[in-house]
Design a protein around this nucleic acid. Structure first.
Lengths: 209, 209
DNA sequence: TAGATTGTTAATCGATTAACAATC
DNA sequence: TAGATTGTTAATCGATTAACAATC
């Protein structure tokens, strides 16, 4: 059975909603409540859960604590994930200091850059030369990396990462990277997302006229 | 006729691919070529174009210059877009200096923050107190804004933006914002995207065993 | 013309939603 | 029990792909 990407994304959203409910002191939740919280239908919620083999109580909905733990396990959030970032530009540095990652058990072990001026081995998260990328990935057994280099070096960086043993990549470079068997690449293209907003905003304006 | 979000995103991708082809000196392109460049089928390319009323030449494919201009017009890229950012944290500052925006005719007019220590009116892009948000949006007739504040103030910021006249929002806060009629909200959730990579990476590992 | 590519329709595929029997 | 909610199946909806007539 193949799990759709949207479905996994919703799982992350359920998790975030459950964190809030937990903090508010709730102990049980209905598919209807969760649906409202993330703007989907209750059918969708129950369908998603059944795909992952999560079941509740036919009368009393779901136990929040249990549900939370099950989802976290599926998402791999019960273990710490060590990752690296390649590209110490503005986005790379922003992610390096991203508080949410810490909270969520995502540890950035190093950032790599080709610019010698950016190297800083003393920083709590070291910034290292790209030349040391392969060695570091292999020594630390890093499986996941983030690419925040410019478009024209992204493919080269990906090749190096994969050669060193990386299995999953979050890519911020606005480029269609080559696919490799067994390697996950997820693209975030901020400019594209903003163009989307611009498109629909002007379309909506035109419809009013 | 309703245009799907995916379809608009692909339009941005076609545009980027066309920029590259132009730079390489090409003048014509077939649906097949474009399909390869962004990893879709040629049917998809022609279908997308027909949805937007873009037509080519039954023998010679598409004139790149013409196609590029038509897509840019649809995406609103033939005019400059003035936008603001609320939240001068790491992500906000990274976007403030994001080179791609400049290249693509997206001008960031100001960044707003509630922390007095971050205010800087002399900067080429001024960082202003959130109190001045409404006045600025109205005076400069800003229509599009980016939210990069923490989760717990995102809804408040959105309300203020909309009250001031903002019509489209790119939201980086990991929260399900309330919907408003006629207002476009597009969410980018970086942690969720990384969790997606983690999920599929571990799933793939398990399948190997 | 012959060959190749578009534009569009129909078929397929996949994801979401509705409905309801099971059951707590 | 009666009422409410789950879990799952079937129906619907929407997006992608295949196919091919039109045509340059």
């Amino acid at each position: 059975m193949n799990i759709a990407k949207n479905c996994v994304s919703r799982l992350s959203s359920y998790k975030n909603a459950l964190t809030k409910l937990k903090n508010l002191g709730f102990t049980r939740v209905f598919s209807d409540n969760l649906a409202d919280l993330i703007s989907v239908t209750s059918s969708q919620v129950r369908k998603d859960f059944s795909l992952f083999g999560i079941s509740g109580n036919r009368k009393g909905g779901y136990n929040i604590e249990e549900l939370f733990n099950q989802i976290n396990h599926i998402l791999g959030k019960d273990i710490v994930h060590n990752i690296i970032i390649v590209g110490a530009g503005y986005i790379g540095k922003a992610l390096m200091k991203y508080k949410t990652f810490e909270k969520e058990g995502i540890k950035i072990r190093a950032v790599f850059d080709s610019d010698p001026a950016k190297i800083n081995r003393e920083s709590s998260i070291p910034i290292l030369p790209v030349k040391e990328l392969k060695e570091f990935i292999q020594a630390q057994r890093i499986k996941i990396g983030i690419i925040t280099v410019p478009e024209n070096s992204a493919q080269l960086v990906l090749d190096q990462m994969i050669d060193a043993g990386i299995q999953g990549v979050l890519n911020f470079a606005p480029i269609n990277l080559k696919e490799y068997p067994g390697i996950i690449i997820n693209n975030v293209n901020i400019e594209l997302e903003l163009e989307n907003v611009i498109y629909y905003t002007q379309t909506m304006e035109n419809n009013k006229k």
